[in-house]
Amino acid sequence: MSRLDTLKEQIRKALPDLDLVIGWERGFDPFHATPFHIKEEADIDRLIFDATCVHNLASFLTGLAGKKVGVVVKGCDSRTVVQLIQEKLIDRESVVIFGLPCTGVLDKAKLKAAVDLTRVSALDVDGDTVRITSGDETVEKDLKDLQATKCDSCKYPNPLEFDHLAGKPVEPHGDEAVQYDRIKAFEDTPVEERFDFWVGEMDRCIRCYACRNACPLCVCRDHCIGDSRDPHWLSQETDIRNKWMFQLIHAMHLAGRCTECGECERACPMDIPVLMFKKKLSSIVKDLFNYESGVDPTAVPPLFTFQVDEETINERGW
């Protein structure tokens, strides 16, 4: 039985006790999947799982409080669920987790650069090969070249927390050591260049807030301080300063919480590398507090606590 069939069977069994199950269905073309709520048994047949299932479905969980919800997660998404449990934002008892070992998801931007997507009629992923058919022509590409950057350094391809697991666990295939290379190289450039870089990037931001809306840990919803008039953190102006400030608010509010699912950067229509901020914060938190978010449901996030004597913080003597 294939991984998908196992998953469907598990959902079929669990569905009577649940209000809904969140999964993916095929989108408007072969390289898009779209999140999908399974409410009755007939819906289960529409469920899919392959490398186009990029969305972190844990984003929906906080909005469905009070309901008994099933959620389908990949390894990285399961970290988000764990983090939400850690912060008591969702109740473990009211969530049923369907875990899937994952071998990497596609990056739409990379796909677009590699092939002309306008005429694509079929796309399928077989192991490490991506087969793309447009018209009567089929090209084969290596998944490694087309997968999301986060998958290159993936450490948790298997769900960390689940009630049902479909398919066999896979070996971590990413190289963890390379994950901070981009940031290290960036930090080695002079500070003036880094300043100019972000001014240029933020200039392109259209303040659509897709990054915030896609973020599974941005749970304030209507109370986001980016929208508030009192306190007035941001004005309605579309200048670079306000846009930059917004991105830094988003990043700082995820310090020690972000599970690096990369939804912010994926959702960005302007391809601004906002994940860099969050990656950096995760590496700081790892260095300072030896903590990784979304790994242990019982751990206390590092900024929610303290130690009287911090061994890793240099008391700034003057």
Binding site: F186, V191, F197, W198, M252, A255, L281
Partner: peptide
């Protein structure tokens, strides 16, 4: 430690 990556 975060400021360097922000360009500040």
């Amino acid at each position: 430690q975060f400021l360097p990556v922000t360009g500040i």
